[in-house]
Design a protein around this nucleic acid. Structure first.
Lengths: 199, 199
DNA sequence: TTGCGTGGAGAACCAACGTTCTCTACGTTA
DNA sequence: TAACGTAGAGAACGTTGGTTCTCCACGCAA
């Protein structure tokens, strides 16, 4: 196979991979992992089963890749919104405003990591590890924002709890309101953990 | 069938029902609903499949009963601990101390309602309704504690978010520490929402 | 043009699982 | 003791779903 052919083939594979992962995001997030068969992924992506299994050797592998991609995309979307704020304190509260926007999206069904952990965390250590990684990365991100605002580390964990609680409560109750409550609570905790406003 | 016979038969059925629900609590909570087959419930409970289906017409019915029983038991256990505290403010923080004890139990796997909602909430409206009911009852209980402490209603929702966040974070991270963080945050929020200390 | 490798559609295979059925053993009653 | 109903053990049934296989059409090299 020539270099040109190889490159062309790789483009085809990449495109198929993208379609499969797009379908996985939609289906696994929307209905839950166990409620979605590989056949549904096939129909939704338009990629044949043969190719699907060439790209991902098993459903488990696809699930893990779904989680890894979601982790990256979710944190990028959050950071995009947060970094647009001018001051460190505003960047902290922006987290909760972004959550409100997310909760308001049609089809919001809670945090994929919390849901998938609840579904398979007891039975799949890989899924549990992905959830841990995602939540730790989120916590560390909050910790950086808190440090940048010159506020004590203890605040970060508390903000994380508010955010996690808001995700769960918004999902179960079906309203985006918990984001507002969490933001209000976050503001009060910031007052209680005074900082310099500067790092 | 005489009255005496009927009473005896009912005792047998009640005992079987209890064994089935005990097994369901252990298995569904520990491994997730979909990961547990009716055969596993049968082995764990020692109740024959025939009886099992006499007591619960389907797995779905058993799952719903599992959730309903858990709701009652969980809230009773919480209230038992909370009501033992002398002052309204102490009753509020006792919620988080009780959470710490719960998170520290071997086999803690998060909140069954959050987990089951993540697993089946998108596909079973009954499961979603049970989760909503349980979470609303918990929120209302917090609201009563907050009112009893003469503090503003807004505090209750914020405390609920901390508690939900702590359940999720403790489950995924595998440590009971989030309960402590949540309690510290709750204390700060109580200072920020001053009350009379009396209703 | 003819053979060959590649890829897609979907059938096929196999295991798991919810649910029902059969068969057998036992205890009770005339 | 003999007939009967009940209950349990586990086989059986039907469906679903993950994974693999078969068959066919198409495009490219000699």
């Amino acid at each position: 196979m020539t270099d040109r052919e190889e490159a062309a083939r790789e483009q085809v594979l990449d495109a198929a991979r993208e379609r499969v992962l797009d379908a996985a995001q939609e289906l696994f997030y929307g209905r839950g992992v166990q409620a979605v068969g590989m056949d549904a992924v096939r129909s939704a992506s338009g990629v044949s089963l043969k190719r699907l299994y060439q790209l991902f050797p098993s459903k488990d592998a696809l699930v893990l890749e779904f989680l890894r991609q979601r982790d990256v995309r979710w944190r990028l979307r959050l950071a995009d919104h947060v970094e647009a704020q001018p001051t460190p304190d505003e960047r902290i509260t922006a987290v909760f405003d972004w959550l409100h926007g997310w909760f308001s999206e049609p089809g919001y069904r809670g945090c994929a990591f919390i849901n998938t952990f609840g579904e398979m965390g007891a039975v799949s250590s890989e899924v549990a590890a992905e959830a841990q990684h995602h939540k730790k990365a989120f916590h560390d991100y909050l910790a950086r924002l808190v440090t940048a605002a010159g506020r004590p580390d203890a605040l970060a964990g508390q903000l994380a709890l508010l955010a996690e609680g808001a995700m769960v409560t918004a999902a179960i109750s079906g309203t985006p309101e918990p984001a507002r409550q969490a933001r209000d609570a976050a503001r009060l905790l910031m007052q209680a953990h005074p900082g310099t406003g500067q790092p």
